[in-house]
């Protein structure tokens, strides 16, 4: 077969820049960025997409996605996204938030954005800790999990139980799509890609808020190797955070 006849079967998504990711080895943020870029390309949204970036390890999203971006105060991304989408209804608005950002300080904003049936898409990275600030307890920290602020392990009575965001948001009438996926194997990534498309499709069809929760590793703050992190995600996180689609339009 001549070179000209060869078919290109794989390439970096067009809306992903050539910048090198700054994430720690084994971190899944890079993978989630790539999935976002692929989905933007799939729906040909790069010329109308606006990213709203929460505060956390994903804050440099604009270095990696070649789309318009706006930083948001910690937790307020769904409110910022509301302001953008309502004043520019033709744009495609996607937030990128961690579990501290969305499930602790920003609980109110995500619930009310969903409840108003805002047509926005939420990419929610659940790594069960505060990555950026050095591994403190998150609302998603598992019972017994040691973090820098739960040295004896998280005690649900007193420290709180893990919050299941995808299920919680799926109960709201304005939510069009809510699913939880994982990032630690090829099979899971394939499922994640499909779910990400549905979360985008919800906005494209103006059905309401689409949320995809991605279980992700933070090897640095889990004090684990990337391999150990993958095993922990599979063995421990999925028990507390069952994978699945909780609402699909």
């Amino acid at each position: 077969m001549s070179i000209a006849a060869k078919k290109r079967v794989f390439a970096s998504p067009a809306s992903l820049t050539d910048n090198k990711f700054h994430f720690c080895p084994g971190c899944h943020h890079g993978l989630v960025h790539r999935l976002a870029a692929e989905t933007i390309d799939y729906y040909d949204l790069s010329s109308k997409a606006i990213g709203v970036i929460g505060v956390g390890c994903g804050v440099f999203l604009y270095d990696y996605l070649a789309i318009d971006c706006c930083e948001s105060p910690h937790g307020r991304a769904p409110a910022v996204a509301t302001g953008i989408k309502r004043s520019n209804p033709d744009s495609f608005v996607v937030t990128y938030q961690g579990d501290g950002d969305l499930a602790a300080i920003g609980t109110s904003e995500i619930i009310h954005a969903a409840n108003r049936q805002e047509s926005i898409t939420i990419i929610f990275v659940n790594n069960s800790v505060y990555g950026m600030t050095g591994g403190q307890m998150a609302p998603t920290t598992l019972p017994g999990q040691k973090t820098t602020t739960t040295p004896a392990g998280r005690q649900p009575v007193g420290d709180g139980y893990p919050i299941n965001v995808a299920e919680l948001i799926s109960t709201l009438k304005g939510t069009a799509f809510a699913a939880r996926v994982a990032c630690h194997s090829h099979t899971h990534i394939r499922t994640a890609r499909k779910a990400m498309r549905r979360a985008f499709q919800a906005q494209i069809e103006k059905r309401g808020l689409g949320l995809i929760e991605l279980l992700s590793a933070c090897p640095t703050n889990w004090r684990m190797t990337p391999q150990q992190s993958v095993r922990r995600l599979e063995a421990e996180m999925i028990n507390t955070f069952p994978l699945g689609t909780y609402k699909d339009f």
Partner: peptide, 20 residues
């Protein structure tokens, strides 16, 4: 016109519209 859930949300909606 949006009646927001709090002033935190209001000012950040303003921020979003202003960014547009």
């Amino acid at each position: 016109f949006i009646q927001a859930e709090s002033e935190l949300a209001s000012i950040n909606m303003v921020l979003g519209a202003a960014a547009s």
